[in-house]
Simulated assay, not measured.
Amino acid sequence: MLKENYEEVQKKITEACKRAGRNREEVTLIAVSKTKPVEMLSEIYDLGERNFGENKVQELTEKEEVLPKDIHWHMIGHLQRNKVKYIAGKVALIHSVDSLRLAKTISEEAVKHNCEIPILIEVNVAGEESKFGVSVEETLPLIEEIAKLPAIHVEGLMTIAPYVEDPEENRPVFRKLKELSVDIAAKNINNVRMAILSMGMTGDYEVAVEEGATLVRVGTGIFGERDYSKR
């Protein structure tokens, strides 16, 4: 079942790229493996997947220890400052930076661990009170401050769109994030690239791809529904 799910997601990404006139190579799938056992991750790994996303630091570090070392781990969940030290040097990308205080901690830990840490700024495009992320208006001023910090690099933006029945409803959200990234890129800020747009999840990743996503975060579409009772 996992193989069929995985191949179906890859196929849909390819088709969305075609509709948008994009190269398939522009979009990377992240298999969101939170709450899923190592055996399931290994099965997806054996199909060629190397990008896995986790929401919790402890789960990420436990899996990172036992799974192959060529996996790129993505921290996609809300990150507390006191947990940063556990993932410094272990993550390929932190998607969820939404404050200068968090960025400063990441920078300090990167220096301590003698590594560079790429990050994305989480933008709450839809302005949902239940979601983390900075407002569209706050994004540029925050990036300008983070850009001054050592050993941390802003690579782009991330958003979690609202939960909707019809994915088309999120098209304006994705479009807005893309426009914001273009505006920020035009500022040519040192230590800032807008190469990555992390947007789109199981319910709406095809629309996100059509609107310019370079990373899509798919969990349920690959692994099935999550079982939170095991946590």
Rank of each mutant, 00 (worst) to 15 (best):
L2H: 10
K3A: 12
K3F: 07
E4A: 13
N5K: 10
E8L: 15
I13D: 06
T14E: 15
T14H: 14
K18S: 15
R19Y: 13
A20W: 07
N23P: 12
R24N: 15
E26P: 09
V27P: 10
L29A: 04
V32F: 12
T35I: 05
T35R: 01
Y45A: 10
E49I: 00
G53C: 05
G53N: 01
L60V: 00
E64T: 03
E64D: 06
E65N: 03
V66K: 09
L67A: 01
P68S: 03
D70E: 02
W73C: 01
W73V: 00
W73A: 01
M75G: 00
I76P: 03
L79I: 00
L79R: 01
L79F: 03
R81Q: 14
A88K: 04
G89H: 02
V91M: 02
A92N: 09
A92T: 05
H95D: 12
H95R: 12
V97Y: 03
S99Q: 08
S99A: 14
L100P: 11
R101L: 15
L102P: 08
L102W: 07
A103C: 13
K104D: 09
E108S: 08
K112D: 07
K112M: 08
E116S: 01
P118K: 09
I119R: 05
N124Y: 03
V125P: 09
A126R: 02
G127K: 05
G127W: 08
S130F: 03
K131H: 12
V134C: 14
V136W: 08
I143R: 04
E145F: 12
A147T: 05
L149C: 10
L157K: 08
L157E: 12
T159L: 00
A161H: 05
Y163D: 13
Y163T: 13
E165G: 13
P172R: 09
P172F: 02
F174M: 06
R175F: 08
S181N: 15
I184A: 01
V192R: 09
R193H: 15
R193G: 15
A195N: 15
L197M: 14
L197G: 06
S198E: 14
S198M: 07
M201S: 02
D204S: 05
A208I: 07
A208S: 10
V209F: 11
V209W: 05
E211W: 04
A213D: 12
A213K: 04
T214M: 02
L215K: 04
L215R: 06
R217V: 02
G219H: 08
G224L: 07
G224I: 12
E225I: 05
Y228E: 07
K230V: 09
R231P: 00
